[in-house]
Design a binder for these strands. Structure first.
Length: 575
RNA sequence: CGGGGCGUAGCGCAGACGGCUUAGCGCGCCUGCCUUGGGAGCAGGAGGUCGCUGGUUCAAGUCCAGUCGCCCCGACCA
């Protein structure tokens, strides 16, 4: 490819809305343009990189016996109503209607469609297991798209689904996919970790995430340096101590706390520690309100609550809803005197005495409230978000925290979808049984951004060889110089003959602009044909190398040195 | 969806209190000359219904209302 013919509009300045480095660099380097909020167009450079990522994913999936298919993006609402996810997934789905007013969604994920396609054809255990996958666009109407490709409303994903007649068979596919994902991350050149994760709205009982390290990531990682445990903070169980109070129960008292709403404000106003307050949060689910109680200095893990009450549609209640139902602003909600309300508490609440809670009356809180005497709890569970320095659930050592980007997610779904969709096969004993299913996602477009987050410097992107749009760029310093021009052309042809993907910068531009573009786009290797040619040399420089090496132009060394440099190239290393 | 903010040339921005006449600046773009090792220089030039609709006014990018779009913060997940 010749740069003069390449559509790669590079920019000196980043657009003002680019918040994160991957967004700014992919934009400036001419990979992407924004079409709408959270919707991006992929230009030729991006298309090349995305294709390479897709091919790596494809090769690894094929290698474990998964078969590629393409399922429709448009899916009928009925399919989603069968499994109840039209409501559960609800607001996050892009919905549309056809001319007959029939409802559809642009697929955010494809469990229903895959199960539907398979259920009438796979009837015997002899036909199992089957593992299918596809690579294509997905649509999620995010509350707030942001961070460019990292949180888009339209994105490219590989999603796979496996169907089994036994847990052991599912375990095998799950293991295989985990290996495949490790290969993918390794071949792309990402630094990552595999963590235990929450399964969220996808459902199921076991789940792991592949998370690449990045400070802008939205996944909170918890890791144990002693035993190697790692987890998403949505999943990690709290295995620490609960502080137990032996204080004598004092008299319940309603106190005036004007305009004092948050835990911090209450603590300050009443001169108590946040750990002496019980935070009361109201959620709305399909059976109405649920009140959750947790010690004031701890964050509540909504995933844990959803699992505990077995309602994935659970969400934090709007202040308006709360006021309409209870006549109290959210800052003053509390468990004392509530009736006909499902109350769930964190284990820690059991051991607290003389706590501060909302007064269920505007501008009032109770002090010295005590469990059993003043309020009751229907059930207890672990509701805490585990934080750095909490003990490791495995070995008890303090956990450390870091941020990451979720790229891959594997789930053991079990029979959630096959049961509700009546997807049955016949086993050896002639019994009809629901498929045991697994589900495996990998974010392809997100991977491109995640790589940029890990591999860049002040000049631009530093692509790993495996997914760089081109492996080599040849920079012709002066297009007026016929010797330079001719040699650049020759190297260009020689490298292409060896199957190397090379871009020839044959533009009539000042050398500065060519160098800047090359660094910005981030090709692994640059061959400069310039002034050194008068002494019979060209220069060879990897993207992360400070100083170029000079190569004699005669004797075919250029091609061999190029191949050598590409093979040794490690984008993570600064040279 | 709630809160905050922004919409002026392809990009980044300036145009306070209502009036500098013809709405500017930098980058980019076009033409010519010159230049060719880190986003060169000189000269000339093109490009705007000031997001849209309505209102106030002798006069509106500028004030008001509505609307659309976008961005940021807020419990989202590939």
């Amino acid at each position: 490819m010749r740069f003069s013919q390449l559509y790669a509009p590079t920019l000196k300045e980043a657009p003002s809305d680019a918040e994160v480095i991957s967004h700014a660099l992919l934009y400036r380097a001419g990979f992407i343009r924004k079409t709408a909020a959270g919707v991006y167009s992929y230009l030729p450079l991006a298309k090349r990189t995305l294709s390479k990522i897709e091919n790596i994913v494809r090769e690894e999936m094929n290698a474990i016996g998964a078969q590629e298919v393409t399922m429709p993006i448009i899916q009928p609402a009925e399919l989603w109503k069968i499994t109840g996810r039209w409501e559960d997934y609800g607001p996050e789905m892009m919905k549309l209607k056809d001319r007959h007013d029939r409802e559809f969604t642009l697929g955010p994920t494809h469990e229903e469609v895959f199960t539907q396609v398979v259920k009438d054809e796979l009837r015997s255990y002899k036909q199992l297991p089957v593992f299918l996958y596809q690579i294509g666009p997905k649509y999620r109407d995010e509350i707030r798209p942001r961070f460019g490709l990292l949180r888009a409303r339209e994105f490219i994903m590989k999603d796979g689904y496996s169907f089994h007649d036994s847990q052991e068979s599912l375990d095998e596919a799950y293991e295989a996919c985990t290996r495949a994902y490790s290969n993918i991350a390794r071949r792309i050149g990402l630094h990552y970790v595999i963590t235990e994760a929450a399964s969220g709205a996808i459902g199921g009982n076991e789940s792991h995430e592949f998370v690449s390290f990045a400070p802008v990531g939205e996944t909170n990682l918890l890791r144990c340096d002693r035993c190697g445990y790692s987890s998403n903070d949505e999943q990690a169980p709290y295995k620490g101590e609960y502080s137990k109070s032996d204080d004598v129960e004092k008299a319940l008292t309603l106190v005036h706390t004007p305009n004092v709403k948050t835990v911090e404000q209450v603590a300050q106003f009443l001169n108590v520690k946040p750990s002496q307050i019980v935070k009361s949060l109201l959620f709305v689910g399909r059976n109405g309100f649920v009140m959750a109680l947790i010690q004031g200095d701890r964050e509540l893990n909504m995933e844990k609550l959803k699992v505990h009450v077995n309602d994935q549609s659970l969400r934090l209640a709007e202040p308006k809803e709360v006021f309409e139902a209870f006549g109290v602003p959210i800052g003053f909600i509390g468990p004392v005197g509530v009736k006909d309300l499902h109350v769930v508490a964190d284990h820690g609440v059991k051991y607290m005495k003389n706590v501060v809670v909302g007064g269920m009356k505007e501008d009032h809180h109770y002090i010295n409230a005590n469990l059993g005497r003043d309020f009751t709890v229907d059930s207890y569970t672990d509701l805490r978000v585990v934080q750095p320095n909490d003990p490791c659930p495995n070995c008890g050592a303090p956990l450390s925290g870091s941020k990451g980007i979720e790229l891959g997610h594997v789930f053991k779904l079990g029979t959630k979808y096959s049961k509700s969709m009546n997807a049955l096969y016949m086993d050896q004993n002639g019994e009809l049984k629901p498929f045991i299913m697994g589900c495996y996602g990998w974010g392809v477009s997100r991977t491109m951004a995640a790589v940029v987050e890990q591999l860049h410097d002040e000049d631009g992107i530093i692509w790993p060889k495996s997914i760089s749009p081109f492996e080599v760029i040849i920079t012709t310093v002066s297009m007026q110089d016929q010797n330079q021009k001719a040699l650049a052309e020759k190297i260009y042809r020689d490298l292409m003959e060896k199957g190397i993907e090379v871009l020839l910068d044959d533009r009539e531009l000042s050398p500065g602009m060519k160098f800047k573009d090359a660094d910005l786009i981030g090709f692994p290797l640059r061959i400069t044909v310039g002034r050194a040619l008068t002494e019979g040399f060209v220069e060879l420089k990897t993207r992360n190398q400070a100083k170029p090496q000079k190569i004699k132009t005669d004797g075919g060394a250029v091609v061999s040195k190029t191949i050598e440099a590409l093979n040794e190239y490690d984008p993570h290393r600064k040279v």
